[in-house]
Structure formats: C-alpha cells, structure tokens
Design a protein around this nucleic acid. Structure first.
Length: 501
RNA sequence: GGCGUCGUAGCCAAGUGGCUAAGGCAGUGGAUUGCAAAUCCACCAUACGUGGGUUCAACUCCCACCGACGCCUCCA
C-alpha cells in the first residue's frame, strides 16, 4: 500500500515509509497543563491518534510518544521580551478564586501556590479526557506520555552538547542561547529563514527590546536555559539553578525516547514557528543528523460555528464542557465527540458545530447498532479478514491518501447500508475499521446506563400499543424523550437508548 | 510589515488540461408506521471565491484581486 501524507517540511504529499521499514517512531507535542484541555487541543491529539491507529491497522508497529509540558514557563523568552503573566501563576490565581467561590472540585489542588500540584492535577485531567475520547497513547501506553520535568537531565545534556558543537553560547546575561546563525537550515520549515529574520526588530509590534538584544548574538537566538533563583520550578545546572527554555524539552524527549531521527512529528499549526523550527535546530544541532523528523504533520485549527473559538465569544469549550452538556444543553457521549473531532482531515480547518455534533452522534449510533446486529447474528462464529477484503481495501486506500477520512467514512456508511451476507465476516471488517475510528469501542465500554425505570416505561409503552391505547404510549414516549432518550417501537417491543448528543 | 496554509453544494470531500463535476453526511419526496423513530427507494452543484490571461479545450496552468485561518509573544 502506498501511503502519502502532506508533509509541512516539503509542502507536498510525500510517500511514507518508516526509516527502519517496520517501526514508526512518532512524536506528538502534547498540552501544557495549566488548565483543562479544550476541544481544539483534542482535535490535534486525536488527529495524531488517528495517524497512529491507521499505521497500526495496516501493519506497522508504532512507538508514539507525547510530551506534557508541566513547567510553568515565563511567557517571555527572557524578561525584556514580553510582559505576559506566567500561565501557571494565572492557573494558581484562578484555582484560588474557584476554591473561594466553591467552584473548584473537592480537594482538586491542595496548595494552589505549588506549581507541581497544579501541573499534576491538570495532567491527570488531560489523561482522563484522553482515555474517554479513545486516545490510545493515554489509555494503552501512558508510559509513553512524558512530563517535561522528568527530562531535565536530558535537556541539560543536550544543551551541553549544543555548546560543545558550537550551536549555543552563554549570553552576557548568563542565559544560554541557541545561535541560529550556526544552523543554516533554520527557517526551512516555517519560511522564516535567517535572511528574513535579520529584520526581526522591524516586526509589527516592535517587540524586540534593544537592551535585551544586546545579550544575544542575533535577535532570533532563543533561550535554552535561564538561571533564576526566584523561579519556583528550578533545577541545578552548569549555568546556575533555573529552568529550561520552552523548545528544548521536545528535542531532549524525542531523542531520549525515540532516537535522533524520527518518522513523524505532529502538532498544531501554531507550533510551526517558533517551536518546531527551534526543535529542528536543537535536535539536529545536537545529533549532527541531517534530518530530525522526516514527516511534519500539522493540524489546522478548529473553529466553532464558523468563527474562532474564544472565551470572549462564549464559544470556548473544554472537553469536559462538551461532554457535560455545556455546549449543546444535553450530555454528549465521548464517542460522538471523538467522531466529530476526527471527521475532518487533519490538515483542513474543521468546523465544530452543534449540528455536526448531533450528526456525529447519529453516525456513531448507526455504527454501534450495526455492530450489535452483526455480532448477534454471527454468534460464536469467527472469521478472519485481511486488508484485501474489498471494503477494507477501499477504506484503507482512502486513509492512505493523506488520511482522507471523508472518503473513508463514506466507504463505511455505504457498506453498513448494504445487506450483510456473512455476519461473522462483517464483524471482523467492522472491528478492523473501528480499530482506526475507535468509536464503537467507546460505546461499548460506557455500558448501557439503563435503569429499571426506563425498562418499566418501555414495557408500558409496548403494552399500551398492544391494546391500541396510543395516548398513553405517546405520553410515556414523551417522558422518555424529555429525559434524553431515543425511543423506538416495533411490534416486538419498545427500546429506549440514551441520546449521544 | 514579514512568513505560511487555504477557498468545489448546508457540512466534509474526490478531482492535478478534455466524456453529462465521485462519494458520504445533512436536506427533500415517497414506501413503511396509529403517529414517530429506525429502515428502504428516489431526488438533490450547467457549477468549482472574483476578474483577467494562456490554450482547440481550465475546477485543474499563469497573473491580479477578494476572503478565511495560523505564526512572527505562551498557545493544538
């Protein structure tokens, strides 16, 4: 199978082959844990999840590593470059207020002034959200989700190596900087090449402070280590106790966990510059390799109802918001949210809408009911299917074409509405498909959630219909519907299922 | 101001110079149903952001413009 992915580095659909032929080494930039992850974050993480699931389904072994930034970075590259508030400090403030007003969950963070506690709290929340949404790296390989604070020695080692190899230097202010001039390929990914960065000072905001620039050789040089004894999160280093720059953690982690050269690197489109640009410079500068990640897969941002997601517009949703019903007014099944977030190709802007969520819920329901049906019909019969099965062939061919999920879903929808000849074969095909989509498995793990009252009402509807007492049947149906259930009556009986969105 | 991505129906999307512009979702009509839901059948872009140009021929190539999005400061 010929697999092609759009590669940001070459700006073309490149033929994919793992470097060693069988094991795909994949790294994803994960979240910074100072708040709950929002649906935009997860759109990106689930895109990576889809890539890894697809590659596994077609036979590759995938080592997928994700980082969690649990360091409270100062927002500035060095103090003079910016005036923003540290995200961790902002989180502390917010948590304190939430605690005072009783909005914070019971015992969520004992000491809001402790950044380690804040980070741990949101890290756990992120992993929980990830598990709910079927993110494989979260529920199957948590040992491959690494926190930046666990890689400080590796970062220091890499910085030392960069200095040794002439890619980094200690500035007049004692801060360790990367010397971008020492890396001619700087700018290849983003287009912000060295000749263009010469004019950095002329930038729109004029944000580069001259006094700060005096400490560096080049305005574009970025920080690797900053000594700061006042910083709460600080570690000893050859350059004084302090904290690492923002970009170094990913280079150190990818190198340690996957080696100097990896197959795929994913992240949001916002990370292209400076983060990924700097990451390439650090990794290649440290390893001396001619390449770091072969493929750069960037996910485009998610919009909500056609506009940017922002707190001020009131259309900013965390995963928890959506699942809890804050977006739609009704609780949303994680499978429906997963489907909604993966249904648009990762490189295209996706539009999150309430209608789309309902559509997604419908699709998931269709799929899970199809699964139930063929599983029941198949009974104990088990059939093996290969990727040469006509349905799977089409499904995977679509995905092999830059993960064209629209076409792949089209294949699935068409297939499940054609008569099933061999239920056991259908079970096997669906399992394979869902090993990528990961939505049917989520509907199964959640359990039915039916209580006795629902069963009683369904029985009452059935009996009322049998004696042709339709007003009573309709009344009960309305009761169930108002409680968020979909009701379906046939001659054999009435069943109610919780709506998924 | 600089760098980058992108504009095909309500939504996603195929299409990379040439038959009447794939497919899925949604929608509409019908069958079915006490009514619904589900299911099944049928229908659903003379048109590819706009305006030029190249060509026998353009959604596909070139130019300009318009618009959307991301980055240049932490950010999926």
């Amino acid at each position: 199978m010929e697999i092609r992915f759009y590669n940001s580095l070459t700006r073309s659909d490149d033929l994919f082959q793992p470097i060693d032929g069988h094991t795909v080494k994949m790294y994803s930039c994960g979240p910074t844990v100072y708040d709950f992850a929002h649906i935009g974050n997860f759109r990106s993480f689930l895109a990576a999840d889809l890539v890894r699931r697809f590659l596994e389904a077609v036979g590759y072994e995938v080592w997928h590593v994700m980082n969690i930034t649990d360091v409270g970075h100062m927002t500035d590259d060095s103090s003079a470059d910016g005036a923003g508030e540290d995200k961790m400090e902002a989180a502390a403030k917010r948590l304190k207020e939430d605690k005072k007003s009783g909005k914070a969950p019971e015992g969520c963070v004992a000491d809001p002034d402790n950044p380690y506690e804040i980070a741990a709290y949101y890290r756990d929340a992120f992993l929980e959200d990830g598990r709910k949404l079927g993110m494989k790296v979260a529920f199957e390989y948590p040992q491959r989700v690494h926190c930046a604070t666990k890689f400080i020695p590796q970062m220091i080692k890499l910085i030392e190596k960069l200095i040794e190899r002439g890619h980094a230097y200690v500035g007049r202010d004692g801060v360790v900087y990367y010397d971008v001039k020492s890396f001619p390929d700087y700018g290849r990914l983003s287009g912000n090449t060295l000749d263009k960065l010469e004019n950095l000072q002329e930038g729109a905001g004029g944000r580069i402070d001259a006094s700060n620039q005096a400490n560096k050789r080049n305005p574009a040089d970025f920080m690797l280590w900053k000594a700061d004894s006042t910083h709460v999160m600080k570690w000893d280093s050859p350059w004084g106790a302090g904290y690492p720059g923002w970009h170094i953690e990913c280079s150190a982690m990818a190198m340690e966990a996957l080696g100097p050269e990896i197959d795929i690197h994913t992240g949001g489109e916002d990370l292209i510059f400076p983060h990924h640009e700097c990451e390439i410079a650090q990794s290649r500068g440290g390893s001396g390799c001619g390449s770091f990640a072969r493929f750069w897969l960037h996910t485009r941002f998610l919009m909500v109802e056609g506009t940017k997601m922002s707190k001020s517009k009131g259309n900013f949703f965390t995963v928890r918001d959506v699942l809890g019903g804050k977006a739609t007014g009704t609780e949303v099944h994680p499978a429906a949210l997963r489907y909604e977030l993966i249904r648009t190709q990762f490189g295209a802007q996706c539009n999150f809408t309430m209608k789309g969520l309902v559509d997604s819920a419908n699709s998931v329901r269709k799929l899970s009911e199809f699964a139930e049906r063929v599983e029941a019909e198949a009974g104990a019969k088990v059939v093996e299917v290969g990727l040469d099965h006509p349905v799977l062939k089409q499904f995977f061919a679509a995905l092999a074409n830059n993960l064209n999920i629209s076409e792949a879903l089209g294949v699935v929808h068409t297939w499940i509405s054609t008569p099933v000849e061999d239920p056991a074969e259908a079970v096997a095909v669906l399992r394979k498909i869902d090993s990528v989509l990961g939505v049917v498995e989520l509907t199964k793990s959640a359990g039915s959630g039916d209580d006795d009252e629902i069963t009683v009402l369904c029985q009452a509807i059935h009996e009322a219909r049998q004696r042709r007492d339709f007003p009573t049947a309709d009344l009960h149906r309305k009761q169930l519907e108002s409680r968020g259930y979909e009701v379906r009556s046939t001659a054999e009986g009435t069943v109610a299922k919780r709506k998924m969105a």
